[in-house]
């Protein structure tokens, strides 16, 4: 008590500085983050309302012209639909599989650490390298998937499904790779939640004769709902903002049917040089990002409220 009173007195005597040493230490990082994230973000919003292109630095105001043009751009509309479809499907599949896998990994068995480590490799490996391996798995002529399907007589001996060459199959291939890549990440988060569930609760439920599914759906999952929220949030974020998987697997093909917002923005903004139109396409990611940001703020405020 005495020491805190003394400290308070000392603090009152010290001259009050507007900028404390903490803020000076933060200044370089905050400045840098503003210059490379905040400023470009504002710039990309401005681009989308301008005429700017790679050859022509025409910053004049274009109003909604870029956005109006987008709604008659069939590839853009397809890319928007694909982005939503891929994100939703990946989210659902990842959540179901992550719950199954985390439930299995929550058991105690020999070799658990090794198996867990191996199961996490798809998330730890560089996405470009693993996606290019998938591109070879889905090769037009030498696809190992087709070889297996032919051996199992699911497809005929002279059938060669073009995994990356048929619109619907291309989307399925993209979903497969995204699920493969993100599943370990969602599993680790779900597992961390499951191991934090108090054992007494589970044991009490066992005593009451609750079966496996009752325990999972009535106790474990409701308790870990906030942490599943984190898994949902980042799975969605990593899926709908990603360009590497789509670009390496299909480049948006065949016939620009498998583009997502990011890859079509790259095609239009960089390869075709129409920065204004490209920025307008990328900007359609912003509403979803805003939702995610609000969600994060909600999680944080919940934490500080407790």
């Amino acid at each position: 008590m005495v020491s805190t009173a003394l400290q308070r007195e000392a603090a009152a005597r010290r001259p009050r500085r507007l900028i404390t040493w903490e803020l000076w230490l933060l200044l370089p990082a905050v400045t840098y983050i503003f210059l490379l994230i905040g400023f470009p973000l504002l710039l990309s919003i401005y681009y989308s309302f301008s005429h700017i292109s790679v050859g022509r630095r025409d910053f004049s105001f274009a109003g909604l012209a870029n956005f109006r043009a987008l709604f008659s751009d069939q590839v853009f509309l397809q890319a928007l639909r694909n982005t939503i479809l891929i994100t939703v499907v990946v989210l659902v599949v990842v959540l179901v599989l992550a719950t199954i896998l985390a439930t299995a990994l929550a058991e105690r068995f020999r070799g658990r650490a090794v198996i867990r480590y191996l199961l996490l490799l798809p998330w730890a490996a560089p996405v470009v390298m693993s996606t290019i391996a998938w591109k070879w798995v889905f090769d037009s002529q030498y696809s190992v998937v087709n070889w297996v399907l032919r051996r199992l007589h699911i497809i005929g001996p002279f059938e060669f499904p073009q995994w990356l060459g048929v619109p619907s199959l291309a989307i399925i291939s993209i979903i497969v790779v995204q699920v493969w890549r993100i599943l370990p990440f969602a599993t680790v988060i779900t597992l961390a939640g499951m191991t934090a569930v108090p054992r007494e609760l589970i044991e009490a439920a066992l005593v009451d004769g609750a079966g496996f599914f009752t325990r999972l759906f009535r106790i474990t999952l409701p308790i870990i709902r906030p942490i599943i929220g984190v898994a949902v949030l980042f799975t969605a974020l990593f899926t709908f903002t990603d360009m590497a998987v789509v670009w390496i697997l299909t480049r948006g093909g065949p016939y620009n049917t498998s583009h997502v917002l990011a890859s079509w923005a790259f095609q239009v903004g960089i390869l075709a040089g129409d920065l204004a139109r490209g920025a307008a396409i990328a900007l359609f990611m912003l509403p979803a990002l805003a939702v995610i940001a609000v969600w994060v703020l909600h999680l944080v405020s919940r934490e500080t409220a407790q």
Binding site: A29, V30, I33, L36, I37, G38, F39, P40, L41, L43, S44, Y47, I52, L237, T241, D242, M243, L261, A262, A265, F266, G269, I270, L275, G278, A279, A282, L283, M285, L286, L289, I292, A293, V296, L297, V300
Partner: peptide, 21 residues
């Protein structure tokens, strides 16, 4: 929290203006 939120801004939203910068 503000600094963490900037982690959520994806490079796919920033690469066009950054290419000009």
């Amino acid at each position: 929290v503000a600094i963490f939120l900037t982690y959520l801004v994806p490079p796919t939203l920033l690469f066009l203006p950054l290419s000009q910068i």
